Every structure is written in C-alpha cells, then in structure tokens.
Simulated scan of single mutants.
Amino acid sequence: MSDREILAQFLEMLAAEKGRAQNSLKAYERDLSHFLENSNTGFMNASAENIREYLAFLHAEGMKAGTVARRLSAIRQLYLFMYRDGLRADNPATNIESPKLDQPLPKVLSETDVDRLLDTAEQQAQSGKMEDQRLHALMETLYATGLRVSELVTLPRRAVGTDTTMIMVRGKGGRERMVPLGNKARLALLSYLKSLNETKKEESGYLFPSRGKEGHLTRRRLGQLIKDLAVAAGIMPSSVSPHKLRHAFATHLLAHGADLRAVQQMLGHADISTTQIYTHVLEERLKNLVLTKHPLSDG
C-alpha cells in the first residue's frame, strides 16, 4: 500500500468514525504530507529515530514549538491508526515527547483544537495505564456533556453502566438534570472503569475516586492534567481549562444549529439569559463573515 493510500484511509477513518470536519481533515493532511515530504522514509518504514530527525528538522527551520507539537500529534494519530488496523506491527511514535511551548496560540478553543486534545488523550490511553484512560474518559465526557468541573469530578460510580446513554447530574442548588452521554464518551468511560476495577483499589462511591480527603479527583488536579495534555497536543496550556471545554461544548453546539433552550437544559442554567452569552460569540462571527465575505462589503 502506498503512502498516499494510507493517508487517504486515515483521513477517511477520521471523517467516518470521529466525525472530523473538513477543516480538521485538511489540517491533518497538510501536517502528514509535510512529514512525508521531509522525512527520510515513508509511513510504512519510518522508525522512532526518523520521526525524531523530522522534529529536529522542524526546529532547525525555526518552526514554532506549537506547530512542531501539532505535527507530532498528527503523526501519533496516524501511527495509532496503522497499528490498530494491522498495517504496522509497532507504533514508532509512542514514546516521543512533545516540545515545550513558548509561543502563544489562540485562546479560543476551536473545533480543531478540541479534536487534537481528544485525539491526544485517546493516543495516551493506549498505554493501558489507568491514569491515562481516566484522563481520556474525563476529556470525552467534558466535551460530550458540558458538565461543570465540580459536577464531573463528583459523579457517582453508578452513573455509568454498559447501556448508559443519559446520565443524571446534580447541579447548582441541588437541581437534577438528565444529560446525553454520547457513544465515544461512554466507551471511554467503560474502558476506564474496567482498568480501575482491575487495579483492585479501595472501593469508592465516586466515578473518579482519589485518596484525598474529598474522596474524588479534585478540580485543581483535573486542571493540571488538562494543561499537560494541551502541551502534548500542541496547544497553549493557558488557553485550555475544564471551564473552557464547557464553553466549547455550548458554542460548538450552537454553531451547528442546536436549539438555545436545549443547550440551556444541558448546561444546567436556571435562566436562559446566562446561556445567551454563547450566542454573542456566534453573532460576532456572523458579523465578521458578512463584513468580509458579502459581495457588497468593503472586504
């Protein structure tokens, strides 16, 4: 199979199985084509050393650390795909570290940013370590549900089962609401729970237990884990937090035509005026679109 055929299959998988948007697919294609054109070997025969040499080449060319990290993230996803599909018996990108970021990137989490965060979390979860699988489950659940961080870390273990499609959440003021879970988040949670059960740690009533006095993963620790993940994904850590993923959940839903009332219910806002803040982002985007793209505009 040729390199271009492998790349085409990889992009097809991203579109079919992960629902990646065209802009995201084009970004993956650009990054992987650049690797192919500037490495010393093709996808099938590349070694960990070949990948490191390519990263050194990018640094020598003066490329920003964020761009290098982003391209490494794309390479990791490609080789995870090849390994899973039996195209390769190994994954040469497994133990290659991302560069430290020293350049600011956009603070708004785009859909492409979120894709890279989730892809990187999924790739790390292939280590089989319970902690990596936990972070993957946390990330998928955050973006799939838009939960407040306090709601997420205090979810009871019984909240998720084999056939769970809706989870009951207790929000501010003790108000309860039902939130759709989504298949990717459910599968990530089930994989994490299997790993958690196999560790035979002390039983806890929480879905994300901890040895601390609270008995569950803390908000602060989750924030630290997400910032570490951002570095690995090539995204400025200051632009990522649990609350910003909640913002991304709401903004991206509305951008794809979701009803404002439905988003209000999922977020657990008592007043719809609180939810309307997300429409301001979309209104500004539409305004810029008209001003720059309309045939009668000056742009």
Rank of each mutant, 00 (worst) to 15 (best):
M1A: 13
L7G: 10
A8G: 00
E12Q: 15
E12K: 13
A15K: 15
A15Y: 01
A16G: 00
K18A: 08
R20S: 15
S24L: 06
S24Q: 00
K26Y: 03
A27L: 11
Y28L: 10
E29D: 14
R30F: 13
F35M: 10
S39F: 03
N40W: 02
G42P: 05
G42Q: 11
F43N: 02
M44S: 14
A48L: 00
A48K: 12
R52G: 01
F57H: 15
L58G: 07
A60G: 15
G62E: 04
K64Q: 14
G66H: 02
T67G: 07
V68C: 13
A69Y: 03
R70Y: 05
L72G: 03
L78D: 05
L80P: 00
L80T: 12
D85R: 14
P92I: 04
S98Y: 04
K100V: 08
L101Y: 09
L105V: 00
L109M: 12
D113V: 08
D119H: 08
T120N: 08
Q124I: 01
K129T: 00
E131Y: 02
E131M: 09
D132N: 14
L135E: 02
A144E: 07
T145S: 07
T145D: 10
R148E: 02
L152S: 03
T154Y: 01
P156A: 01
T162H: 10
T162Y: 05
I167K: 03
M168H: 10
M168R: 15
G173I: 04
E176I: 01
R177W: 03
R177N: 08
R177L: 11
P180M: 12
G182P: 00
Y192M: 07
K194G: 08
K200M: 09
L207I: 11
F208M: 06
G212R: 12
G212N: 15
E214L: 13
H216C: 05
R219V: 13
R220N: 06
L222Q: 04
K227C: 05
L229M: 10
A232D: 13
A233H: 06
I235H: 06
M236Y: 14
M236H: 15
P242K: 13
R246E: 04
R246M: 07
L253C: 13
R261W: 07
Q264I: 07
M266W: 08
L267M: 06
H269P: 06
S273N: 12
Y278E: 09
H280M: 01
L282D: 05
E284I: 00
E284L: 03
R285S: 14
R285F: 05
R285Y: 07
K293E: 13
H294C: 09
H294A: 09
D298N: 14
